[in-house]
């Protein structure tokens, strides 16, 4: 009863798991004389997954349900004072509040700004670096170098570049008033640029490995048939790369929804909450307002959103993806 609101997502999880199992089980499910052995095998299997189940139980499932439960309570700013049961009121209040809606819009906007641009740029660089040229390894190293940069370092580098007094951008003439990170209309773009740059390395590596797995014969055959490089890109490279792109979209979106470091370092959710993405909203609610109950609701919302997003991407994109190997 208490957890009825969550049975949908859990059910979906169970469905996924069962589908996989069913596939793996069918060939073995013949005859009953294997019954005893099978039961022993099942027992062993459960024994083997027990440690991971235990770890997941303690560090993932228990906190998750505890968190869900916390959302029913109005919590005091310090421990020791009474908590008050308010049930789903807190869920409905928080999830319909203007702050939440704004934060959600910001988060979606941030994902839309970073994921497609990041993938297109990564793909572009990967295609360029996939040529058989002397010294192309140097370029590959350069293109993938941002993978070795931490979010904090990237944020500080770009914070300095954007600085209106000592920065590089004002020096080359890009000097909006107010400065980018203090500008309500530009701050989200500023943070997005940093994120795109920072994830470019990993996207480039992903795309490169995808490109290298495309057999050369296909390109050669198409070339013989008279297809130019552009046509080959659209007709061969892109379709065969679609599993990689699909993966990058899924992982990139989840990353985008969990962005925190650059926001915390550069804008603290501002100006006027224009970069107040969900993760930062949760952090602020929890740490500054010490409103654990509200933060729990927000965390559940973030979980539900990323979960649904992943499901949609898996179901919808899967059909359009070419998995021919």
């Amino acid at each position: 009863m208490t957890f009825s609101g969550d049975s949908g997502t859990l059910g979906a999880l169970a469905d996924l798991g069962e589908a996989d199992e069913a596939e793996a089980r069918t060939p073995r499910q013949r005859g009953k004389r294997f019954g005893r052995r099978r039961r022993r095998e099942i027992g062993l299997a459960y024994l083997l997954i027990l440690p991971s189940l235990l770890i997941f139980g303690i560090f993932v499932f228990y906190p998750f349900f505890r968190n869900f439960y916390l959302g029913f309570y109005k919590t005091p700013p310090f421990p020791g004072l009474p908590t008050r049961y308010v049930g789903f009121d807190q869920y409905s209040n928080v999830l319909t509040s203007q702050d939440f809606v704004d934060s959600l819009k910001t988060t979606v906007g941030f994902a839309l700004l970073t994921v497609p641009a990041g993938i297109i740029l990564g793909l572009l660089l990967a295609v360029l670096a996939n040529q058989q040229l002397r010294g192309v390894g140097i370029y590959r190293t350069i293109f993938s170098s941002t993978i070795a940069t931490s979010v904090a370092v990237a944020a500080v580098i770009f914070g300095t570049l954007f600085n209106p007094v000592v920065g590089l951008l004002p020096w080359i003439g890009i000097d909006p008033k107010p400065p980018i990170l203090d500008n309500p209309n530009l701050a989200l773009f500023g943070v997005a640029i940093i994120t795109i740059w920072q994830t470019l390395g990993i996207t480039f590596i992903l795309m490169s490995s995808g490109l290298q797995s495309i057999p050369d014969e296909l390109h050669e055959a198409a070339q013989i048939d008279g297809a130019g490089p552009v046509r080959r890109f659209w007709r061969i490279t892109l379709p065969l790369l679609s599993p990689t792109i699909f993966f990058a979209v899924v992982v990139g979106s989840i990353f985008a929804f969990q962005t925190f470091g650059q926001i915390d370092i550069l804008t603290q959710g501002g100006p006027i909450k224009r970069t107040n993405v969900l993760t930062y909203f949760i952090y602020k609610t929890l740490r500054q307002d010490s409103n654990d109950g509200k933060a729990a609701v927000l965390a559940i919302a973030l979980f539900a959103i990323t979960f649904v997003l992943t499901l949609i991407q898996m179901r919808v994109l899967e059909k359009r993806v070419h998995y021919g190997r």
């Binding site: 600085n163 990170l181 203090d182």
Partner: peptide, 11 residues
């Protein structure tokens, strides 16, 4: 000159 509000900004 309005120099913004971000922390650690001493412009």
């Amino acid at each position: 000159l309005a120099t913004g509000s971000t922390e650690g900004n001493f412009d």
